[in-house]
């Protein structure tokens, strides 16, 4: 599976500014690509283009070498799955019923899930450790479990590209790490994962690729440990940070801490 984005530009109306301005990057199976950038720089717009929600972009998006514009939503759904932020739901579906919805593109228009679909859903839930929650209400489980349920729904969709919009937003510290660890394992199993995050440490710990976006342009594309420097993070987010090596039994990895020695408001301006 491969994803190639070349020279992608997008604006919501003809007169308004470009939300994406000449974005290019490629990714392949096994990649966990972390997209960093402040709020409103076009991360979500980029995802919406790749998912086929927004079609009036210029440039090209290719899935496995096929132009996205030539695919209908059903075909896109076979290749790309979307994992939204876990929000509190309006309707309190049982977790199993929610996961079953991932198989929409494998069920006839007037059909309903059968035993084989239920089995597949339970298998995916088991691989994420949430099979015991099958009858629990989606509104009653924790934020981390909700995120895992959404991931299970994406897995049964049989798409090999997973797009995740800030999968760790709204999660407590422990759940952030547990969810990221599951996501890394999925990349190791051959999925192509693109996720947005505001936490450089998640990129350091789990991503093998990082894409930094500012004002609709890609300003860095590389390996987190080498290319995600303190200077870059500082420029993108407008704060001072310190990036350092941290040695533990697993090896050396990078850590990122904000530096705030001056408590006056204008320190960074």
């Amino acid at each position: 599976m491969s994803l190639d984005v070349s020279n992608l530009s997008f604006s919501y109306t003809k007169e308004s500014r470009l939300v994406l301005n000449g974005v290019s990057f490629s990714a392949k199976s096994g990649d966990l690509l972390a997209v960093l950038g402040p709020n409103g720089v076009g991360k979500s717009t980029l995802f919406r283009c790749i998912l086929g929600f927004l079609t009036n972009y210029s440039g090209q998006i290719q899935l496995n070498g096929i132009d996205l514009k030539k695919l209908d939503s059903r075909s896109i759904a076979r290749m790309v799955a979307y994992i939204p932020q876990s929000t509190y739901p309006v309707f309190n579906f049982a977790v199993l019923d929610l996961v079953l919805m991932g198989m929409t593109n494998q069920i006839r228009l007037l059909g309903e899930p059968k035993a084989e679909h239920v089995e597949k859903a339970l298998k995916a839930m088991k691989s994420l450790g949430i099979d015991k929650l099958k009858n629990a209400g989606y509104a009653e489980i924790s934020g981390g479990e909700r995120q895992l349920a959404l991931i299970a729904r994406a897995l049964v969709q049989d798409a090999k590209i997973l797009i995740m919009d800030e999968p760790t937003a709204n999660l407590d510290y422990g759940n952030q790490i547990r969810v990221m660890r599951r996501i890394r394992k999925l990349a190791d199993a051959g999925y192509l994962i693109i996720l947005s995050t505001h936490n450089p440490e998640h990129a350091f710990l789990y991503a093998n690729r990082v894409l930094v976006i500012k004002d609709g342009c890609v300003i860095a594309d590389g390996i987190p440990s080498a290319d995600l420097t303190a200077e870059l993070i500082g420029t993108v987010y407008g704060v001072k940070v310190h990036v350092d090596d941290y040695q533990n039994i697993a090896g050396v990895h990078k850590i990122c801490v904000p530096v705030d020695t001056d408590y006056s408001d204008n320190a960074d301006d």
Binding site: S73, Y82, M101
Partner: peptide, 10 residues
Amino acid sequence: EDEARSLGVN
């Protein structure tokens, strides 16, 4: 809308 479309529904 978004989630339904991402699941392949028209």
